[in-house]
Amino acid sequence: MADAPGAGGLFLRAHLYLVYVFLYVPIGVLIVLSFNEAGLPTAWTGASLKWYGALAANETIQRAALNTAIVAISSTIIATTLGTLLALGVEMRQKPNAALDALLFAPMIIPDIVLAIALLAFFSLIKFSLGLHSIVMSHVVFNIAFVFAVVRTRLRHFDFSVIEASVDLGAGAFTTFRRVTLPAIFPGVLAGALLALTLSVDEFIIAFFVAGAGPSSQTLPMQIYSMIRFGVTPEINALATIVILFSFTALFLSQRLNREVLTS
């Protein structure tokens, strides 16, 4: 269905390429700078891994990276389990329910800052302790919604009668889930999990509000924020490069597993 490239077509194509330039040049500049020995955009003094070395030696960053891994992995496991079950339950009901849809859509659209203050107010009202566990619990809230959405698109192409067939053939509910349902939807589940993982690794505001005081529950984005806000050190370019490349890899894998994850 492609158009013959007339003048209009050429203009459109040129515009599209410019949009990619606009989207990727800022990120590219950061990546290139992270290898600049001087560490500043003022002058290129040669390629070096110096700033990556500084990063590796920085204990605060290491601690934050570990915290982020704990938060992201825990919230991903919980959200993937709950979100997948939700998607199965909602699709099997086959009765549309607008209130349910709205509830499951809300975490994606509610402003971060609002969810952040709501959770902080809630935790402090019930005198719940703050720390990595409260960040995990909060991240699960939005991650459930994303996993649900991804797995649900996968289930649209799933023939529920195979579950019936399996049960008819004498398999129990658990065996059916493990041997029939899960293998069929697994790419969708994994794609949802990878998306959840990146969202959690990158999330800043909610974590910032519900982390509580003290350095013990600082996550990487909180670290990045204070590095940006209170004096830019060249290490941040190296850190930004690692985080961005991690996200891009996870998202690429996610898209490979389930073509509709990011583009639907």
Partner: peptide
């Protein structure tokens, strides 16, 4: 093409904003 366009959207918001400080 669409994936390439949407990819940055899902990556770290702080870093994407910081990139503009550098620029």
């Amino acid at each position: 093409l669409l994936f390439l366009a949407i990819l940055p959207f899902w990556s770290n918001y702080l870093i994407r904003t910081y990139a503009w400080i550098v620029l």
